[in-house]
């Protein structure tokens, strides 16, 4: 611990170039301009999500029916929607909703998958077999269909959508976690821990899970992007988040009916969806490239 602190102090002073695994990864990541740009964009989105109320002068549900469907102007930078509400505000607040549901969904699936996958990978044998067969069954269901069924059963709204999407994406992550665990299990430091006499739970929590985390982070980034797209898809189909809560998917759904005469209603939320997806994809790729020393860009 002390050693580590000393190294960091020297690194900060510029005297040595730290060669810790983590700093190497960060340096590789920074070389990837696209990935850095994506990270910046995502941080920007998070800021928007958190400070949306402050950034926008209007309420997201402040209606002004006689002002509906106005083109972008000084008063309304993105124009107004079919209720006279400010589109800019709704897109910004929609960021909050989309990100929130996405994080919740991925969070739910990751936590469950981590636990289940670790158990399967670590204990092996019959437990592993049973868990993998059940995972196979879940993987045989097409994702959208499963999400729709669960969503229809649970109902609409932020929480229900997050649960539905989270639940339906547990299976693939379980596979991933289990694969990492299997690779790790035979490593020496696990054997050393066992030799020390540490119990199984301690080993799982202290050693296995943190080491399985690295490839998982990449998965999480990619999944966040996919989930935002899935939320939009669900909202488009009439499930997912419902108006008046602003969400990019349901704004696009409403906007498509006005597409021929009034573009802003579909244009702005649509652009945000595409950019966010791009950002998460590039970020995920960048992190994967950074973590894998063999991949040169």
């Amino acid at each position: 611990m002390k050693r580590w602190l000393e190294t960091r102090k020297l690194a900060r002073k510029g005297e040595i170039r730290s060669v810790g695994k983590f700093s190497l990864m960060v340096r590789r990541f920074c070389r990837n301009k696209a990935a850095v740009a994506s990270l910046v964009f995502i941080l920007l989105l998070i800021l928007i999500a958190v400070f949306a109320d402050v950034l926008t002068p209007y309420d997201y549900d402040a209606q002004n029916l006689s002002e509906k469907l106005r083109q972008p102007s000084a008063a309304h930078w993105f124009g107004t929607d079919d209720f006279g509400r400010d589109i800019l505000t709704r897109v910004f607040v929609g960021t909050r909703v989309s990100l929130l549901v996405s994080i919740l969904a991925v969070g739910i699936s990751t936590v469950f998958a981590l636990v289940i996958g670790s158990i399967a990978g670590y204990f092996g044998g019959a437990v592993d077999n049973v868990i993998m067969r059940i995972t196979d069954i879940f993987m045989a269901l097409p994702g959208m269909l499963f999400a729709m069924t669960v969503s229809a059963a649970l109902g609409t709204g932020i929480w229900n959508t997050a649960i539905a999407l989270g639940f339906t994406s547990i299976a693939p992550i379980v596979r991933q976690v289990r694969a990492s665990i299997l690779l790790l299990k035979d490593q020496e430091f696990i054997e050393a821990s066992k030799a020390f006499g540490s119990g199984n739970t301690v080993i799982i929590v202290r050693h296995v899970i943190p080491n399985a985390f690295a490839p998982l982070i990449v998965q999480i980034a990619l999944r966040l992007g996919d989930t935002i797209m899935a939320i939009s898809g669900l909202s488009f189909l009439g499930l997912g988040v419902q108006p008046p809560t602003p969400e990019w998917g349901n704004m696009v759904s409403v906007g498509k009916d006005y597409m021929s005469e009034f573009l802003p209603l579909i244009l702005f939320p649509g652009i945000f969806v595409i950019l966010t997806m791009l950002a998460f994809n590039l970020l995920g790729d960048g992190m994967r490239d950074a973590m894998d020393p063999r991949m040169k860009r």
């Binding site: 609409t156 499930l239 108006p243």
Partner: peptide, 9 residues
């Protein structure tokens, strides 16, 4: 409070 749903529900 609004909780819209699909037609069947």
């Amino acid at each position: 409070n609004l909780s819209p749903g699909d037609a069947a529900t």
